[in-house]
């Protein structure tokens, strides 16, 4: 295995919970001791239900949130404690793609102006060089050059999305964090966008962190997948392994909850009760134990760590087999 392109070590992000008088009454542990490494050229899926901390993870990596504790190693440098102006030169290689990248276009700017802007901020290329780069990227996302002089409202939503992607790619990033890139899309459009992600990855040698709650999509496009529950990675491994033999009871329930057309109906078989507890008030020991069908007294006492007991797969459970 080559050196990881991005490595996260015991990353923690706590948000203070304040009462009416702005007094801190507790911590919301959005990320609690998260560690993983991303290899160059791989697509790592990060899945979990809402509130599990997957978006916080993406934003903390980007420096949108400052980490409470832990290290983020990118290009042999710990970028977690850097001030925004110090991390700027790293951040052009680490890009963040919002749910709908098209929505972040300025409605009063032409597509050309929007695409030039990141290059003006981050590079000292001349106008002609910038224009050449912009045209190259625009072709890569499958848009005609005539679109450069249009305004966002003149093109369709799908095309806006492509422009948003182009804007991220003009800086030639090495890692792109995709935050729920397909939620809110219809299935027929979703396939087209996913194909675009895959072709761009090949063309530009990108590494993706694919944050999503849609397991069927993750299964198709990710090389490895990390499952998060209440701020912690409970299982991580190769996608095929995790989907074929989920080890953690939470992963098992999550996979069991996806409707399978033609298969047994989930409404007849699904057994998981309850909803996740509040992240401000976590249960002792294993945080899944309040809903876990396998919970034992040990689970309340000891917080399980990730165990690498299986080939290319790790799970944080005392009783996983």
């Amino acid at each position: 295995m080559s050196a990881p392109i991005l490595e996260v070590q015991s990353l923690r992000k706590y948000f203070p919970v304040r009462n009416l008088w702005k007094r801190r009454v507790g911590w919301l542990r959005a990320l609690d001791d998260v560690s993983f490494a991303v290899q160059p050229g791989e697509i790592l899926g990060i899945v979990g239900e809402s509130g599990c901390g997957k978006s916080t993870l993406g934003k903390t990596l980007m420096g949108i949130h400052t980490a409470t504790q832990g290290r983020i190693l990118f290009q042999d440098q710990d970028i977690a404690p850097l001030k925004p102006h110090q991390s700027r030169k790293f951040r052009q290689h680490l890009q963040y793609c919002y749910q709908d990248p098209g929505a972040s276009l300025d409605p009063r700017w032409t597509i050309r102006a929007s695409l030039h802007e990141p290059l003006i901020v981050h590079t000292d290329l001349g106008e002609a060089e910038r224009e050449a780069r912009v045209r190259e990227i625009l072709a890569a996302v499958g848009l005609p050059e005539t679109h450069l002089d249009l305004y966002p409202h003149e093109i369709s939503g799908g095309q806006q999305r492509r422009v948003g992607l182009a804007r991220i790619l003009t800086l030639k990033p090495s890692v792109v964090i995709l935050d729920e890139p397909t939620s809110g899309l219809d299935v027929s459009v979703q396939a087209t966008i996913l194909k675009l992600f895959l072709s761009l990855q090949e063309q530009f040698g990108l590494t993706y962190l694919f944050v999503s709650h849609d397991l069927s999509v993750v299964r198709l496009i990710c090389d490895r997948v990390a499952v998060m529950y209440l701020g912690r990675i409970v299982e991580i491994g190769e996608t095929a392994q995790v989907f074929a033999t989920p080890r953690h009871p939470y992963t098992q329930s999550l996979l069991a909850a996806i409707p399978k057309i033609g298969g047994a109906r989930v409404t007849d078989t699904f057994a998981l009760e309850g909803e996740p507890p509040s992240p401000t008030n976590l249960p002792s020991g294993c945080r899944f134990r309040t809903r876990c069908p396998k919970a034992q007294p040990l689970c309340a006492e000891k917080d399980p760590a990730l165990r690498a007991d299986w080939p290319r797969q790790e799970a944080a459970c005392h009783f996983a087999e």
Partner: peptide, 15 residues
């Protein structure tokens, strides 16, 4: 086509 565009391991990605 709508059914075919569902992501699945057999058919891959078809929009």
């Amino acid at each position: 086509k709508l059914l075919d565009s569902l992501p699945s391991a057999e058919t891959g990605l078809r929009g």
